[in-house]
Nucleic acid binder design. Structure first.
Lengths: 280, 280
DNA sequence: ATCGCCGATACCCGGTGGGTATCATCGCTG
DNA sequence: CAGCGATGATACCCACCGGGTATCGGCGAT
């Protein structure tokens, strides 16, 4: 059985007219007639009643119409699924300053040269980097966020510090507590941001402060407006900023997250590679 | 996408060797290589890693392997379902003496000349005429029987009578009750026969008597052994038998039955035709 | 370094899928 | 009732494609 013939048959069965169907298929009528006869011979049944009055479906033809539509639909899905298995989009959040992700992508490309891997920088609105919206296949992000329907894999946990201007009175301290920062203005995330995540990144409390949508905006908020935020230690954000450890905050985990329903075989391989890359 | 190419791909993916796969497909290696390249070009992805060491699947290839197997399997099912929709096997029970079924088959053939309709006479063991075993698409039989998983359509209800030899003392009566027959030997159906059906055709009670497997055997049992049985009125069974109405039995319904899961479009058409044929 | 295995390439041929021209049939209409 | 128009079937042709054979190239093993 040939999918081409099924496509032809569906056209004829829908039009109930060889001429119109041929037109729709951008071909002439005689080869179409022949193709349908061929399909009938292949299946060993008559699919259409032909008469000068018109064309009508036999019971076998009616069955084939629905079955063929179904099969053609599924063949398209196969195409889509195979294409999905040939490319991987990874969303990253807040770690755009981290060179690790670039090295990770490179080593993945070396391992799977046939796979197109794309890194997408997400904005802070969505800690799952568009995972639920289907924009990315995997998110590399920082917990916490609502994990419903997601598989998670913790890659690393970073101690957190307060991001301060170098001329801040606290900037010379080698450690801080949340109490030291209680009177400062904190970031505000846009509405719709995961509540868990928002409260954590504000030091576990609801805070007042300017709205930020991207990492660059956070840095600017600290530099220009004297607000304060949290960041993993060891990242060099700017010449004019320091990150001072805050001792009474739990470390911030970096997690890989992907939809529990996603069967893309590239995902486990990527997560494993990410795990070794982040461990080192 | 061409199912032929998918078949080729499955062979190569299973053998992981172009030569062996070509052998399995009864073709030579070069056109097979070309076909796989074609499939890759069509899908826009590499499906196989080729090296002198051997062939291995890319992630997209692994996905396609399962998807292709699935699609090929389904294409075979389409073929089977279309063939099923082009032929109808009707099982009939106990009414082989009824000329109505022959007329019904003829008028169905006139209505659907492309459909092969086959009438199968069932034995008394199975009142559903092999419906559950898949031997027939529709059963025209007499209730009662276990209707689980079946759709039923009552075609007619016949008053019942006792089948007696013409020289039986009761043969001249114009009506009887079950009480009149209480001391007679009744039929016995083979083990496995539907219990509902068995008890009904024995006058609603468990009875002693010879085992019968076919209508002919029932007639012979009455003629030769003096046993007794029930039959719808108005059928001429034999010159030496009469059917005397039994007034305290409910009429016996003739029903069309077919599997609730069967989507064969021939079934509704046949049932409708049967309904009008039996009504007349 | 060389041999051997295996997939790729080059090239050829016949069948098939597409085309055009025309026929046959049937329903409609004047 | 004859002629016309519409529609599917048939006849025939051509280009392309799916199959074949012969051979190359590259990598691994010895």
């Amino acid at each position: 059985m040939d999918l081409r013939l099924l496509r032809y048959f569906v056209a004829v069965a829908e039009e109930l007219h060889f001429g119109r169907a041929a037109n729709r298929l951008h071909m002439s009528q005689p080869p179409l007639s022949r193709a349908i006869r061929q399909l009938e011979a292949d299946l060993g049944t008559t699919l259409l009643h032909r008469s000068a009055a018109g064309v009508s479906l036999t019971p076998a033809g009616a069955t084939l119409l629905t079955e063929a539509r179904n099969l053609l639909e599924q063949s398209e899905q196969v195409r889509a699924r195979v294409n999905a298995a040939a490319s991987l989009t990874v969303g990253i959040l807040a770690d755009s300053t981290d060179p690790g992700i670039a090295r990770l992508a490179d080593s993945y490309r070396r391992l799977h040269p046939t796979v197109t891997i794309t890194i997408r920088d997400a904005d802070l609105t969505d800690p799952t980097c568009g995972l639920r919206a289907g924009l990315v296949d995997i998110a590399i992000t920082r917990a916490p966020f609502d994990p419903t329907g997601l598989h998670l894999h913790e890659l690393r946990a970073d101690p957190l510090g307060a991001v301060l201007r170098t001329d801040d009175p606290l900037a010379t301290r080698d450690r801080l507590t949340l109490a030291d920062l209680a009177d400062r203005a904190w970031f505000q995330f846009p509405p719709g941001t995961d509540a868990l995540w928002q409260s954590f990144w504000n030091g576990g409390q609801s805070r007042e402060g300017p709205v930020v949508r991207a990492v660059q905006e956070c840095i600017q908020a600290v530099l220009w407006n004297g607000t304060i935020g949290l960041a993993p230690l060891g990242h060099h954000l700017s010449e004019e900023l320091v990150v001072v450890p805050v001792t009474d905050l739990p470390p911030s985990p970096v997690v890989a997250a992907w939809p529990a329903t996603d069967t893309n075989p590239l995902i486990p391989a990527f997560v494993q590679l990410a795990a070794t890359a982040y461990r080192g």
